[in-house]
């Protein structure tokens, strides 16, 4: 496999990005390009998986078989691609049937006729993780030269993938989204608690939290958290005497 030939021209990738209506379409084209560039010697099945914080994973596959091979990993929540993606290191399985570590996965995908697997992480920003997965129907497809060619290719598509992630961002402020959702869950629970304890409206309960936050120079969600913690303690002790609908009582 020629290494230099497998480095796609940046302009070509940028055109691809501009022409794709959405992230999934872009990723599919990128996967097709990768499969044709890398599989010039032996036919390769390729897939690219992208996991973004707070969003479901996007998987693009060069063939139906590659899609099934990737989906099996999600069914188990384990597999070479997910390991490459989440631990950010290359996973090479020269002989899938003989590899004890991936026995489980090998059995699940045995009907696809896959003999060897290579999964390589693609560098992205903190809020997303990506990996390029190559599946081969032959043994020993992934020699040292091929592994470095695939790694090189993964590095070469990293920048365009980051641009695509930014352009087709699921949310304009992804890094703040999780924090806001977590904070909101705590505040809502505290508001409900105050409403129940004081027999008051939601607005009044929020006002109580606001005043408490101002008076103590603390963030509102910290006040809410403290309130819930304090409420949970006596509940845990007296749980048997309480109606079984109080979920905070289960906190150990």
């Amino acid at each position: 496999m020629a290494r230099n030939d497998s480095t796609p021209v940046n302009e070509q990738l940028q055109d691809l990005l501009l022409e794709s209506p959405g992230f999934a379409e872009f990723l599919l084209e990128l996967t097709m390009i990768s499969a044709s560039l890398l599989g010039s010697g032996t036919p390769l099945l390729c897939a690219i998986t992208v996991e973004r914080a707070g969003a479901p994973a996007t998987v693009a596959s060069s063939t139906e078989a590659a899609r099934r091979l990737d989906e099996q990993q999600y069914a188990f929540d384990d597999g070479p691609c997910l390991t490459a993606l989440r631990q950010q290191h290359t996973v090479l399985i020269p002989d899938l049937a003989a590899d004890a570590r991936w026995n489980h996965y090998a059995q699940a995908v045995s009907q696809e006729g896959i003999r060897s697997v290579l999964a390589v992480p693609i560098a992205t920003r903190d809020s997303a993780q990506a990996a390029l997965n190559c599946y081969s129907l032959q043994l020993d497809t992934f020699g040292p030269e091929t592994v470095s060619a695939v790694e090189e290719h993964a590095a070469s598509i990293s920048r365009i993938l980051q641009l695509a992630l930014r352009l087709h961002s699921a949310d304009p402020y992804p890094e703040h989204l999780r924090a806001a959702l977590e904070s909101r869950a705590v505040v809502d629970a505290a508001v409900a608690l105050i409403m129940l304890q004081n027999n008051c409206s939601r607005d009044v309960a929020l006002e109580i939290l606001l005043v408490a936050a101002r008076n103590s120079n603390e963030r509102l969600h910290v006040i809410a958290q403290d309130l819930l913690k304090r409420a949970a303690k006596p509940l845990a002790v007296t749980q048997s005497a309480e109606p079984p609908t109080r979920e905070t009582g289960g906190a150990s």
Binding site: L177, L181, V187, L209, L220
Partner: peptide
């Protein structure tokens, strides 16, 4: 404004 809104939603 979008950042403010997200924080505001986060506090209820």
């Amino acid at each position: 404004p979008g950042e403010l809104w997200m924080y505001y939603v986060g506090i209820g």
